[in-house]
Design a protein around this nucleic acid. Structure first.
Length: 877
RNA sequence: GGGCGUUUAGCUCAGCUGGUUAGAGCAUCUCGUUUACACCGAGAGGGUCGGGAGUUCGAAUCCCUCAACGCCCACCA
């Protein structure tokens, strides 16, 4: 067995093992394998992205699960890939063109797309390379990109089928327009933020000035497009005005006063100006009341040509000038400060303009129902479960989905228009036939589809659907989707209804949603705050294992993760501890590389004890991982490894190891090696590199890799008697150390230990070598009673035994009295508490009998210990 | 406006269906170069479990209410 270096060096292990794993085929499952499949589809990162800490988290979690399942013997597939990210990529490409003095318009569609593909080739693989550094065991042979031919074909098929079924339609509706990205976006892509603004009160006069009416608005500039004023039909103030007309100042348009119940009488003046072209409520009201739609804002987010002098002006300037003009006209009644919610584009954060526009939509109602059903009937499970409510609420209130984008980078809509009459044809390619009007020229729709339209098909389009493929048969539906809770609406829900519609099946059995990674103060990590942690720097400095550990330790899916660099230090310390414990084990095995499992009778109590703890750990970690309690799984491993295995077991077993003649030495070697093997296996999903590196020194089969080694099974060797004895031993050792530390007794001062014990005596005597090592013992003596023990011995009480430590002249009597006094008070308090319960008749009457009996036992035990302490005190005094 | 979540030691979090002397890691302090590890070991201090009220023999745990923080949805112009 080779001797390990002083420290683990991540860099060399990382490249070595990643290459070995990949070459071994461990990442690449065979679709023909008889093993049960376990499939995870990566949430495809954008090609524009660089790996950030959030990616590091979500991909670590996926890797933990896929490695766990692979070791459990599943035919594990983690399919990787990237998303073309239409808006983000197009913006990046436009930006890079600008630097070269080029523009989208000048290049034209084809020229632009050439540049975009070139950009993708150059930068699109960044994240994928970075995932390898993290240790992600993805099947790179199945890597996909949302604009691949196969996936694009799936997109076209879905579009065409939904269109033919009437579930996709084109219509003029009010949509969210981002003037910066220069495209429509869906409702889900708008984020609202509160901003201080004003509420302007503007007076609209009757044509003959016989009356007037004041409206309140947050958007005075849209008045140029007003085609009505609405009041609540029940509003007494305005009842007699309904049906009459007023004049819009500046444009001098005569508009009708209409009654609509959506108007809140309490808000503002109770009268609302109606701009159907630029407001969702107004659009609806305009429809009901047949109002004209006048667009006043252009696609560039500037004022249109309704009023010449404002044409081309940006909105805020126009707002100021229009307010000024109203003031001069005498129509401005007042300005109130007001906070209102402004919609922003989730990509570029530019203010979104509601705008009437002709776009393609997916009809949601019939698609939403089955998606609600599968969660309700538990076919699809969401972790943590509280997200079910959010999922349901969103689907129950869903609006039609605007899917067309005025972009070039993406899946072009497979719709064609007759050049002459505009008739729509939807199909794989332009029709060969003439239009009914006789024209033979068909022009394809200029727009592309929402990126999320293609990602919605990701779980099946990546497996070759709509073709009938072996991969699809084997790996679909997928097992678990792990992603951030921020894309529940964008992506998760859309995959569910798309999959149900297209394949008739759920896309995955389980969805695991995690929170956001925040900084130590709970703030979002952002460029402007410069509080981000670059995962690649973390890997360079601490290693991929440490980064992974730091992300999973203490992780709870319920809340956002507060992340700071100390997590990396803790991770590093843990890995170092693991490394060193292995170093110790290898040394201990030097002359016996692969100790055989001994007869059960050869195991010492501490062996059985640690094997029992090991079983609990195997069961616990497996259970936690199966329910995606990643933080708890790692915590259980941490505690077992550091406390039970290192601090207790290794220390207890040292005397046996150092004594080459000891008949139970081989048993100790076996348990040590077996324990470490199991620890490495359980830790492997979290810390793949260091565990693989160490496992290579322990494995018995030369060709075996930890990545594909079987998940550990319980040994069921534990015995209750041994566990009790070890716990008793630990009790005395801990208390003894405590006493000595408080009395400042040097470690070199060894003492005799005298136990007055009945049944436990045999065991305590047999533990003499351990007590010498861990309890500063010269010798251990067992007596049947306390006769002859010096009065000034220190005494540690336990119900099963009492430990006396004759310190001779070392003992500080005062200190010992003080200690016993504290002990005495502790037991007095405990006794009072228990007595209070037991003298409460209602407690005795109503509490379960076992609880009452338990309290009675406690009382008896406390009293025994107390009287013994009192006796000692009396002697010392 | 509606909904959800969080609030336990200085910090990060465990404490599941009510009965434990309320736990862990980090940080702090004391002691220690014991042949795996000072990225270590041993030990200590530190919490009336956000406030209030309630149910119960018994509440960190259940109900109500309030507060702070965070998130989501709605959009009253």
């Amino acid at each position: 067995m080779k001797e390990l270096d002083k420290y683990f060096t991540p860099e060399t292990a990382e490249t070595k093992w990643y290459d070995t794993w990949e070459k071994s085929g461990a990442f690449t499952p065979d679709a023909n394998s008889p093993k049960d499949p376990y499939t995870i589809m990566i949430p495809p990162p954008n090609i524009t992205g660089k790996l950030h800490i959030g990616h590091a988290l979500v991909n670590t979690l996926q890797d933990v699960v896929i490695r766990f399942k692979r070791m459990q013997g599943y035919n594990a597939l983690w399919l990787p890939g990237t998303d073309h990210a239409s808006i983000a990529t197009e913006a990046k490409v436009v930006e890079s063109l600008k630097k070269q003095g080029l523009s989208k318009e000048a290049l034209g569609r084809e020229g632009f797309l050439k540049h975009a593909w070139a950009w993708k080739e150059e930068y699109g693989g960044f994240i994928i390379k970075q995932l390898r550094k993290l240790g992600c065991s993805c099947d790179w042979s199945r890597e996909r990109f949302t604009l691949d031919e196969g996936l694009s074909k799936a997109v076209r098929k879905v579009f065409i089928d939904l269109y033919n079924e009437g579930l996709i339609y084109k219509g003029e509706r009010l949509i969210n327009w981002c003037p910066c990205c220069h495209t429509s976006i869906s409702d889900a892509e708008v984020e609202y933020s509160e901003e201080p603004s004003s509420l302007w009160h503007i007076r609209y006069d009757a044509p003959d000035k016989s009356f007037s009416l004041t409206v309140a608005t947050t958007r005075p500039e849209t008045m140029l497009g007003d085609t009505g004023v609405a009041v609540n039909p029940k509003d007494e103030r305005y009842k007699n005005l309904i049906g009459k007309t007023v004049i819009v100042p500046i444009v001098n348009r005569e508009i009708k006063i209409i009654a609509d119940p959506f108007v809140e009488t309490e808000f503002g003046t109770g009268a609302v100006k109606i701009t159907p072209a630029h407001d969702f409520n107004d659009f609806n009201a305009g429809k009901t009341h047949n109002l004209e739609i006048i667009r006043v804002i252009t696609e560039d987010g500037l004022m249109g040509d309704v009023v010449k002098k404002y044409e081309g002006m940006d909105i805020l300037t126009a707002r100021e000038q229009i307010v000024e003009e109203l003031k001069q006209l005498g129509n401005l009644v007042k300005i109130e400060p007001y906070t209102h919610n402004v919609g922003k584009c989730y990509r570029c954060h530019h203010t979104v303009e509601p705008m009437v526009s002709k776009q393609w939509f997916v009809k949601m109602e019939s698609l939403a129902k089955p998606a609600l059903e599968v969660v309700k009937n538990k076919e699809l499970t969401i972790y943590p479960p509280r997200y079910e409510k959010i999922y349901n609420h969103w689907l129950e209130n869903i609006q039609d989905w605007c899917i067309s984008r005025q972009l070039w980078w993406g899946h072009r809509i497979p719709a064609y228009y007759c050049e002459k009459c505009g008739k729509i044809y939807v199909g794989e390619e332009a029709p060969k036939h003439a239009c009914a009007c006789g024209c033979t020229t068909w022009v394809q729709d200029e727009d592309t589809l929402d990126t999320w339209f293609s990602s919605a098909l990701w779980p099946f389009s990546t497996l070759g659907w709509p073709e009938k493929t072996k991969d699809f048969d084997t790996f679909f539906p997928t097992s678990t989707l792990i992603t951030g809770n921020d894309i529940l609406f964008f992506w998760v829900i859309r995959m569910v209804f798309s999959s149900l519609k297209q394949t008739g099946k759920i896309p995955f059995n389980k969805v695991v949603l995690h929170g956001l990674v925040r900084d130590a103060l709970g703030r979002k990590m952002s460029k402007s705050l410069n509080n981000g942690i670059d995962p690649l720097e973390a890997i360079a400095e601490y290693g991929a294992d440490a980064l992974r550990f730091s992300l999973v330790q203490g992780l709870s899916l319920e809340v956002d993760l507060r992340y700071s660099k100390d997590r990396l230090d803790i991770a590093k310390a843990f890995i170092n501890k693991l490394w060193n414990s292995a170093k110790f084990v290898f040394m201990a095995l030097e002359d016996n590389n692969h100790p055989k499992k001994p007869e059960t009778s050869a195991f010492a109590p501490e062996d059985n004890w640690i094997l029992g703890k090991l079983d609990q750990t195997i069961a616990g970690v497996t259970k936690e991982l199966d329910t995606f309690e990643f933080g708890d799984a790692l915590q259980k491993l941490y505690d077992f490894f550091w406390n039970d295995y290192c601090s207790w077991y290794i220390e207890m077993v040292k005397p046996r190891l150092y004594d080459k003649e000891n008949p139970s030495r081989e048993a100790a070697q076996y348990v040590l090696a077996h324990g470490l093997t199991v620890i490495l296996k359980l830790l492997h999903p979290f810390l793949p590199f260091v565990t693989e590196e160490l496992y290579q020194n322990l494995k018995t089969d030369e060709n075996e890799l930890l990545i594909t080694a079987p998940w550990p099974e319980m040994s069921n060797i534990a015995s209750a008697q041994d566990s009790e004895n070890i716990e008793l031993l630990q009790y005395f050792i801990t208390n003894l150390r405590n006493v000595r530390a408080n009395m400042n007794i040097e470690p070199s001062k060894k003492t005799s230990l005298i136990f007055v014990a009945k049944e436990a005596g045999d065991y305590l005597k047999s533990a003499e070598p351990i007590l010498q090592k861990l309890a500063f013992a010269k010798a251990v003596e067992i007596r049947a009673n306390k006769d002859g023990i010096p009065d000034n011995a220190i005494c540690i009480e336990h119900l099963k035994a009492t430990l006396y430590i004759p310190f001779e002249d070392l003992v500080d009597i005062e200190a010992e009295i003080a200690r016993l006094q504290t002990e005495k008070e502790k037991y007095i308090t405990l006794i009072e508490r228990v007595k209070a319960k037991l003298t409460n008749e209602k407690f005795v009457e109503k509490a379960p009998a076992a609880t009452v009996a338990g309290e009675r036992d406690k009382l008896k035990n406390y009293e025994t210990l107390l009287s013994s302490i009192e006796e000692r005190l009396a002697k010392l005094a």
